[in-house]
């Protein structure tokens, strides 16, 4: 599959605008798509991702909800059972836990337990990740909790272009999708050097976004930098940090942006690791039982005889996300650089 683009016209967008444009494009085509969540209606969301949608599509298709995440997802499941295609927002991924039961026991299993009688075609959008001094309740990366659950897809974009195409594909998908938005790169790519001036998307190729409806298929990774020395598997913000480390160190790394964690593009990973013989997994989430552990296990199972060094994991530490020591916690260029040295040693 390749990206299907129905109009060649593109424009510059940041990731918030791209996400907004994805909802706009799907709502215009499909009257069953509805958007709901805390503060998403009149105000357009605390990150403004739904700005303008209520004015355009009306209050019954774009509405504020009571502050109950469990309720939001449960209601979305019910709307999906009716035949709508809800796109609920959880204001921060850190607030998704009250909704765990509805996501894990209900949305994720509905197709299976009813043998297809009912499905949950819902796309849960939620900003995640740190780097904004948000403290422990505005910084977490909970993707590993959901990749562990069978029946739910997990998608994480790293550019405005991918964000729009993946979100449209997620909404069109008939299974529940958790669409995690790396909020640190909403306004521009972040290379991990927190002490340097912030960049915006205006110069990044991923900031050039088609204005119309297009999809980036779920389940397809993207090679963002081809290389021979080592494969770096990353997603979200960490794709950009890895690219910067490759540039800073001159290591000829092959960087793969996974884009979808479940279902995973295992072929792209195997192809790359067989070529480079080394594999590093990078994520911001905590280490133990994280998605990196799954990736390391897969690579070990499938590429063992091609490996010239043990798979390296670079992750956040196994602590709650701190406030003032944010940059000591964040898996930045130094941590990745150290791991690169180690994996390339012999």
């Amino acid at each position: 599959m390749t990206d299907v683009i129905d109009t060649p016209i593109t424009t510059r967008m940041n990731m918030i605008q791209a996400i907004n444009s994805a909802m706009d494009a799907t709502m215009a085509r499909d009257p069953d798509v509805i958007v709901m969540g805390e503060d998403v209606g009149y105000f357009g969301g605390v990150f403004r991702a739904t700005a303008g949608l209520q004015a355009k599509y009306g209050k019954t298709r774009v509405f504020d909800t009571p502050i109950t995440e469990c309720g939001i997802i449960g209601v979305a499941v019910g709307m999906g059972a009716y035949g709508l295609r809800p796109v609920p927002e959880i204001q921060f991924a850190d607030y998704i836990y009250p909704a765990l039961d509805q996501l894990v026991s209900e949305a994720a299993r509905l197709r299976y337990r009813s043998a297809g009688d009912f499905t949950a075609p819902i796309t849960v959008r939620s900003p995640y990740g740190g780097g904004i001094f948000g403290g422990q309740t505005h910084s977490q990366s909970p993707e590993g909790i959901f990749t562990h659950v069978s029946g739910i897809k997990t998608v994480i974009p790293s550019t405005p272009y991918d964000a729009k195409g993946l979100l449209i594909a997620a909404i069109a998908d008939n299974d529940p999708v958790l669409f995690l938005e790396p909020k640190r790169i909403y306004n521009g790519p972040f290379n991990g050097h927190w002490d340097r001036p912030a960049e915006n998307w205006s110069k990044h190729p991923g900031g050039e976004v088609p204005t119309g409806y297009y999809t980036v298929p779920l389940g397809e990774a993207k090679v963002v930098r081809a290389g021979e020395a080592v494969t770096m598997l990353a997603y979200g913000t960490m794709v950009h940090v890895c690219a910067q480390v490759a540039a800073d160190t001159g290591v000829d790394a092959e960087i793969i942006d996974l884009r979808t964690l479940v279902p995973l593009d295992i072929a792209a990973i195997e192809r790359s690791v067989r070529k480079t013989g080394r594999c590093m997994v990078v994520h911001e989430a905590t280490r133990t039982g994280g998605f990196g552990a799954e990736l390391a296990a897969l690579v070990q199972e499938r590429c063992f005889y091609h490996l010239e060094a043990p798979v390296e994991r670079v992750t956040g530490f196994d602590t709650p996300y701190p406030h003032s020591l944010e940059w000591a916690y964040f898996p930045g260029p130094v941590r990745i650089g150290q791991a690169l040295k180690k994996i390339l040693k012999d």
């Binding site: 502050i67 948000g134 403290g135 422990q136 309740t137 701190p322 406030h323 003032s324």
Partner: peptide, 22 residues
């Protein structure tokens, strides 16, 4: 420095650790 500003915890004043989760 572990908590977001104003998320106080003051057991000595009978004040439970504030959570960011409502």
């Amino acid at each position: 420095g572990k908590q977001l500003p104003i998320m106080y915890s003051e057991k000595r004043f009978g004040f439970f650790s504030i959570s960011g989760n409502l």
